[in-house]
Design a protein around this nucleic acid. Structure first.
Lengths: 188, 188
DNA sequence: CAAAGTGATGTCTCACTGTGCCATCACCCA
DNA sequence: TGGGTGATGGCACAGTGAGACATCACTTTG
């Protein structure tokens, strides 16, 4: 808990999103973000390890949460079903609590560096899912494949959810994304 | 063509791979690489845009080559078949000409920054494949899905090929990777 | 209520990345 | 022999990220 001004991290996220939108990611320095948030550059780096991470602060919590949901799935459930169910639960919560998801997505899409970081977060989800499946007893190769496919489905579902303006339920987006991949792999 | 010493780019790649292996990516500076290659830091940046790219110089040519192979596939061929065939052709050439693929892979796996860049190259392959499929008449969503799955297959096949010591043919690795994904998606 | 402790912040410094600008040097050609 | 061309070196600069230390607010303990 911050003692001087409890909202520092939130102010930094807000300032960064604003500045990135106004001037573009490349034209913004960490000093700019810190100044708008009312702190110094050095303090910024005590909240976020680098310039990109200010846009991905909460992303780190997704992978462990989904992995935990997979681990606690009913023992008889199939791998893919367990993973998709976990993604639906956590993803629904995520979509209901996300702040300015469309604006955030637009900023990320405008910068290769930020897209690179986003892919890293998705890879972390894949690794966490694989690990969770392995601890459920699934063989390594199969666990990795399921985790990769599920991560793909999740990313596509999230993109679709944003494109639809957040009106649709996340579960429906997940179903759509899953079906699209099924068709693609079935057409040999 | 370089006039002073034609092998500069190759010397830089070799020096970088050696240094990254010896000291680890984080402990190596661009100055170190340049000095071992017999040039200055400034000249390094005339060959590669940043510190990471020295390990990914040829990767840029993969995506266009595969895309071209997809575009020139027989009109009646199914999307997935056309893409997998293109990946087999280009991938086989790649595996037969790669230098120190195992050492390179080991270095990349040892550094999150390098893994990040590798995922970017894979994403470029996905985009190129999607574009090629779209120009063949495939619908957007389907083209993206096929491209994503094929990229996944390619990456897994390449990893397996390295793990097997380069002894197996790349086509077999592609088949294995495809089957693994099929099983994963089929188990509902 | 005073003194010590704790945690967040500011200040200063430094190595390194990546780039712009200009000088230099070797080689080719007229 | 002199000029053009292309690769390289040298220099300066903004920006990133981190270490070390001081400072200040607030809490805890006597």
């Amino acid at each position: 808990m911050a003692r001087w001004d409890p909202g520092t991290e939130e102010r930094l996220r807000k300032a960064a999103l604003e500045l990135f939108t106004e001037r573009g990611y490349d034209q913004v320095t960490v000093t700019h973000i810190a100044e708008r948030a009312g702190i110094t550059r050095r303090t910024y780096f005590r909240y976020f390890p680098d310039k990109r991470e200010v846009l991905f602060a909460h992303s780190d919590e997704l992978a462990p949460a989904v992995a935990e949901a997979v681990r606690s799935a009913a023992p008889g459930t199939g791998d893919m079903a367990a993973v998709l169910n976990a993604l639906a639960t956590v993803g629904t919560y995520l979509t209901e609590h996300a702040k300015d998801p469309a604006q955030r997505q637009a900023v990320i899409r405008s910068s290769p560096e930020l897209e690179e970081r986003e892919r890293t977060k998705l890879a972390a989800l894949t690794d966490a899912l694989q690990s969770a499946l392995t601890s459920r007893g699934t063989a390594n190769a199969q666990a990795r494949a399921v985790a990769q496919l599920a991560s793909l489905v999740f990313a596509n579902a999230f993109t679709q959810w944003i494109e639809l303006g957040g009106a649709t339920g996340f579960r429906d987006c997940l179903r759509n994304a899953t079906n699209t991949l099924r068709e693609a792999l079935a057409t040999d």
